[in-house]
Structures are given as structure tokens and as C-alpha cells.
Simulated assay, not measured.
Amino acid sequence: MASWGRKCIWTAVLVLAMSALAACGTNNNAAGGKNVQTENAANPTAASNTSTDASTDTSADNGTRTVVGEFGEVEIPVSPKRVAGIYVEDYLKALGVTPVVQWYHPSWGKQDYLNLDVPEYDITGSIEALLEKNPDLIIADGGADAAKYEQYSKVAPTYRLPEKVLQDSRQMLTAIAEVLGIPEKGEAVLAEYDQKVADGKAKLQQALGQEKVAVIRLNVAEKTFALFGVKNRFTGVIYDQFGLTPVPMAAEMTEFQSIISEEVIPDLEADHIIVFPDNGGWDTAENEEAIKILDGPLWKNLPAVKNGNIYRMERSHWQSGAITANSMKLDDLLKAMVK
């Protein structure tokens, strides 16, 4: 009996010892974080929610996605923060995005009408200057050929707009908004723009009817003129979107522009003439001599001039075919032509 009693005591001691070891093991697992797995295993919904939230945060902040540009697929940030838009800053500004640089060319200047307060990037200079600005995405238009695209791609992921969208500012805006991950913003900008164009077109057609319009650029250095055709990416919008009637020579042109002599201008039979210098402004000292041409006897005898229908426009936005520039052109035309 005593022997049986001793066995019971030892059994009880062993049970207590094993219980203590089990408790100790549980505490060690908790210290190692394994209790989290246990809790999630007991609550599958909590585990699922935790995983989804983490995935969403990572995607929003650090994720990438693949898009297809003119030169193939490129992996870009889901939410780019530092964007360089080579020749496309106009679209970035319209979408509420401030670029890290603004392109600049020593001979052409920059798009002054945007009034961007960012460093200039000389596109004829070293690519190192762009690298220093640390962009996380570069967007380029048709000015970037395959070689230039490769250069930009060494700086940051580069999306070169497809050739098929370059002729239409609306398609370019949509493509850029998609790449930036803000398609809904692009839709809103376009809706506002389309409404403005519809209203402006009605007013212009009522004021001008079928009167013929010519767009001419004064090439200051050469003292020549360029007639812009209906396919010109800068000014074709006034015909295909705003509804103005081109002079016959411009309507028949397949090229973007044609260099013409001063003597050809009367043959255009233009009821209205839009003119701007190729560089600088109307009050720029370097342009003073060339601008005197417009005060010569040939110009004074043009019906458009006699009727007060010659319009001296500012070069900066008239030599851009982007969405903000086009909106500004419409403002100019309404102010000049609708009385």
C-alpha cells in the first residue's frame, strides 16, 4: 500500500513537471512571435485582412507595373513621385503634376507660358544634369529616338509615348494620365477641355463662317516665312478642333509646314492671318529688323491687314501642340476674332 502511495506521489510530480515545461514552451513561442501565427490561425479573417493591407501599402508606395511604350515594355513605379517630362511638361501641369525639370534648348528656349518654377534641363547637354535631379520616371514624346531613349533609360524608367498618339493632344493627355496612374484626372481635364472647345468653336464659326485663315511663322534669322499646314502638330488644332477654315494651300499640304517667300503671301487669299516669330518675342531686340517686314508695302496691301484681321500671337504656346497651349490658343482666337 505504501509502495502504491509512493508511485502516486511520483506520478503527480511528473505531471506537474511536464505541465511546467509545456507552459515554458508556450511562453518561449510567444517571445519569438509565434503567438501571432496562432492567433491568425484561430481567426482566418484577421489573417486575410492583415495580408491584404500590407500588400496594398507596398504596392502603393514601392510597387511597379509594366506598360508598353513606343520602344516596348518598361517597368515603371505604380506611384511616381519625381517625374521628368521631356517636351511634355504641359500635360503634367494640366494633370496637376510638377515636373522635376523643364526642358530647354539654346536655340528654341523653353515653354515660357507654363511659368514653371523648376530647374531647366538643357536637352543638348550632358545627360548627367538630368541624373542629378533623381527622377523616378521619365516621359518623352517623339523628340526621343531610340538612341535618346536608351540614354534616358539609364537615368530612370522611361516611357516614350507611342507614335500613334503624337498627332492628337487629347490622346497624349490620356496616355500620360494612364502612365502616371491617374486616369480619372485625365478624364476630368479632357471633359473640361472638350466643353470649352465646343463653346469656343460655336462662337468662332458664328463670327467667321467660311472665311479663310492662314497661320504663318516669321523665321527671324532667315527673314523667311513658314506656312503651317492642317497637319501641323502645333496649329492644326485650330482647323480640326476649333472649326476654322484653312487657306487652300494649307489645306492641301501633306507636310507640317512649307517655307514660302514674302511674295507668295498675297496668293494665299487669306481673310485672316495669324503670325508669330520663331524665337523670342515681338519686343525682342534681335527680332526688330525682321519684324519690319510686316510693316512693308506688300503687307499693308493685303486685304486681311486692311480689314484689321492680322493677329500677332506669342510664340511660346503657338509653337506647342499640347493641351494647355491649345486651350490658350482658343482664348487668343476668341479675344481677337469674336467681337
Rank of each mutant, 00 (worst) to 15 (best):
W4G: 10
A12S: 13
L14N: 12
L14T: 02
V15P: 07
G25E: 13
A30G: 10
N35A: 10
A54K: 15
T58Y: 15
S59K: 11
V68M: 02
E73Y: 00
V78E: 13
R82K: 15
D90M: 07
G96F: 06
S107F: 12
D112H: 11
N115L: 15
D122S: 03
A129D: 13
L130A: 05
N134L: 12
I139H: 01
Y152V: 09
Y159S: 03
D168S: 08
Q171Y: 04
M172Y: 02
A175E: 13
V179A: 09
G181I: 00
G186K: 08
E187A: 13
E187S: 04
A191P: 11
E192N: 13
V197T: 13
D199G: 09
K201E: 08
Q206H: 12
L208S: 06
Q210C: 03
V213M: 05
F225W: 10
A226W: 06
L227M: 05
Y239H: 13
E252V: 01
M253H: 06
E263R: 05
L268R: 01
G280W: 04
A285I: 00
K300Q: 14
L302W: 11
G308T: 04
G321K: 01
A322V: 13
T324P: 00
K329D: 00
D331W: 04
L334R: 00
K335S: 14
